[in-house]
C-alpha cells in the first residue's frame, strides 16, 4: 500500500512537471484574460490549488507513513 502511495506521489510530481512546462504550458501562454485574470496566471494558480488538494489527500491516507 505504501509503495503504491509513493508511486502515486512520484506520478503526481511528474504529471505536474509536464503540465507546468512546455509544450503543455504554451497552450495557455496568451496575453488574454479569463474570468478577468491573465490566462497563464489562472492556469498555474488553479493547477497549484489542485496540487495542494492532492497532497492533502494523499498524506491524509493512514498508510502513507506505514513502514
Amino acid at each position: 500500500m505504501l509503495k503504491k502511495l509513493l508511486s502515486i506521489s512520484v506520478f503526481i510530481s511528474i504529471v505536474f512537471l509536464i503540465l507546468l512546462t512546455t509544450p503543455v504550458i504554451s497552450a495557455f501562454n496568451s496575453a488574454s484574460l479569463l474570468f478577468g485574470i491573465p490566462t497563464l496566471y489562472l492556469y498555474i494558480i488553479s493547477l497549484w490549488v489542485v496540487f495542494v488538494g492532492l497532497m492533502m489527500w494523499i498524506t491524509s491516507i493512514k498508510q502513507y507513513s506505514d513502514k
Binding site: 512546462t21 504550458i25 504554451s26 501562454n29 496575453a31 488574454s32 484574460l33 478577468g36 485574470i37 497563464l40
Partner: peptide, 30 residues
C-alpha cells in the same frame, strides 16, 4: 485584482508580463 489586470491589459508593455514571451523565457522557465 481583476481591475488591476483589466487596466494592465490596456497597456501592451504590461500585457507582456502575462506570458512567457520568447523561447529564451521558456528555456529559463524550465
Amino acid at each position: 485584482s481583476k481591475k488591476v489586470f483589466a487596466e494592465a491589459m490596456q497597456r501592451p508593455e504590461l500585457q507582456e508580463l502575462f506570458t512567457l514571451n520568447s523561447v529564451s523565457e521558456s528555456q529559463d522557465w524550465l
